[in-house]
């Protein structure tokens, strides 16, 4: 493959159309290559459920799924997400029916201010799928990438346990 041919693939620095599948639907967003997936979701697609906390990969408020794995939208460039499947908190409910983890957070009062909650829920669903929710110690360890400034951790763990146990016992 020649260098010249490759160079035609260079995009930016101005806005370029980026096609991403978000919550099962193909979306095209015009963004500069420097724009994060987080900003593309919030500022360009109106999907403000995903929160911006630290914007430096520390707090976990921006946790989304890319190809079914939980990742940080603030450290993912929107351009790099092109061609991948993104799931946000808005994609979790089934119509008006909340996802069991969303319901468990409500029933267990697993938040105070609620700002970290979408990220917590996106992580918590995967935590159970990953099989690392067996003990409270494991829940704490494998949820440690989601910081809760209100320290609602005991109730977050309770919500995770509720979903885990309803799903048929310890994962």
């Amino acid at each position: 493959m020649s260098t010249t041919e490759s160079r035609q693939d260079i995009r930016g620095p101005h806005c370029v159309p980026v096609t991403v599948e978000i919550n099962g639907r193909g979306r095209v967003v015009d963004v500069e290559p420097r724009v994060s997936l987080l900003d593309a979701l919030r500022e360009h697609l109106g999907l403000t459920g995903t929160k911006k906390g630290c914007d430096q990969g520390t707090c976990g408020a921006c946790t989304v799924w890319v190809d079914g794995r939980r990742v940080l939208a603030c450290l993912t460039l929107a351009a790099a997400a092109a061609g991948h499947e993104v799931t946000t908190i808005e994609g979790l409910a089934d119509g008006d029916e909340l996802h069991p983890m969303q319901r468990a957070f409500l029933e267990n009062d697993a938040f105070q201010c609620g700002y970290c909650t979408p990220g917590q829920i996106m992580s918590a669903v995967k935590l159970i799928e990953e099989g690392n929710a067996t003990t409270d110690e494991d829940i704490s360890e494998f949820m440690s990438g989601n910081i809760c400034r209100c320290a609602a951790y005991p109730n977050i763990r309770a919500a995770v346990r509720q979903v885990r146990d309803a799903a048929g016992g310890a994962a």
């Binding site: 493959m1 490759s6 260079i10 790099a80």
Partner: peptide, 18 residues
Amino acid sequence: MRPLTYSRARDVDDALAL
């Protein structure tokens, strides 16, 4: 963040050339 350009490498040689 300063402006950026972006490209996706198709293979190792492509990545090195880019």
